[in-house]
Design a protein around this nucleic acid. Structure first.
Lengths: 201, 201
DNA sequence: ACCTGAACACCGTTCAAGT
DNA sequence: ACCTGAACACCGTTCAAGT
């Protein structure tokens, strides 16, 4: 056969990633397969390997797009320029909102595991760092007197904490442990941590 | 053929779970398959379905055993009866230690996802609650004047936080964001949260 | 009753062959 | 050059057939 030149390589990549995102949004990362992706876009399975090294490569590129959307959501939340005292809360709220509304896409960021011998591409790590930098930056504004090492550590602790709240709240396996809504748990974490952090200057 | 009565049903279950634990410890949950399990124990694949409903059932039972070991590790850490002010830290430390030394087994607790329409068995939820209750109980001893609702919320926030620190520290994808060792991040979270919590009585 | 082994419907990946 | 489709080595699950 050969549907030659019906799509450029770039277009083929784009529609593959779009199909992958739809499949993940609908059925989770477990509902994604190379054969399902090509079935969605009307190609046969071999074609996928023209534009992706393998399925891991496709998933990583999909996840990078998710990281981009997450970053945009966080930036959008900061668009009203809240004072430093509110910015951290605004960021956390936006993160929770993203995880809650895009649950399967957000979960795919963490469910996907690399083969033990391989490492994430730099482009992925940079996108993670960029998001993380947002927290660090606003935490530094809140506590200008603290060392950059203190701020780094606090940003990491806070962000890990908010992430953990999301994870345990969205995992149906573990929601059993009390009926506190996610936002309330995150609020408690933030309020008490920040109270402790600013008072220990 | 038929290796009849060479093992009782209970023995077959036990050696299957042991083989599964070895496979997961060595290669992660992704390295586990029904066919590999039976290859380890010298049976053919059909036999597995005599003692497990399906592979999810086997994984859940394996994870329940991991939860039992985690509970034992936490109890062992409390065996020296630390004062309430130290008990929470002792528990967090033991949790980190478990995640660090049994990484693949600990990860399997969270990597495994149920089919969307199914729910975890009660025995699993109870084991989760039992572990969680340990935190809640020692937090209540630390702050006897707080309402049980306050303590529940704080226990959940703290535990989620510690969990998030583990997750992001052990995930090679995300370790990029700063070279702070896991224990230090967890210490920061605990110290500042508890400082905020006890002072907001 | 216990266990096998073939069968079925999937999966990721490769690659000779066709246009 | 682009794309197919068959092939290979896997996978979970079922079940008739053997002992």
């Amino acid at each position: 056969m050969g549907r030659r030149n019906e799509h450029t390589r770039e277009e083929l990549k784009e529609i593959s990633l779009q199909a992958a995102e739809q499949l993940v949004a609908a059925n989770g990362l477990g509902g994604l397969s190379a054969r399902k992706v090509v079935a969605c876009i009307g190609y046969t399975v071999g074609s996928l390997y023209m534009v992706f090294r393998n399925l891991d490569d496709l998933i990583i590129q999909m996840n990078e797009r998710t990281l981009d959307r997450l970053y945009e959501a966080l930036e959008r939340a900061l668009a009203h320029r809240p004072p430093p005292s509110a910015a951290i809360r605004v960021l956390a709220q936006a993160y929770l909102e993203f995880a809650l509304t895009q649950t399967n896409r957000w979960l795919a960021l963490y469910e996907h595991r690399m083969p033990d011998d391989q490492v994430m591409p730099d482009s992925f790590s940079e996108k993670v760092s960029r998001i993380f930098g947002l927290v660090q930056q606003h935490l530094a504004l809140l506590c200008p007197q603290r060392s950059s090492n203190d701020v780094e550590l606090a940003a990491r602790a806070l962000w890990s904490g908010i992430h953990g709240v999301c994870m345990l709240s969205l995992d149906r396996k573990l929601e059993s442990i009390g009926g506190h809504p996610m936002h309330e748990v995150a609020g408690s974490l933030l309020d008490n941590y920040l109270a402790g952090f600013v008072s220990s200057a």
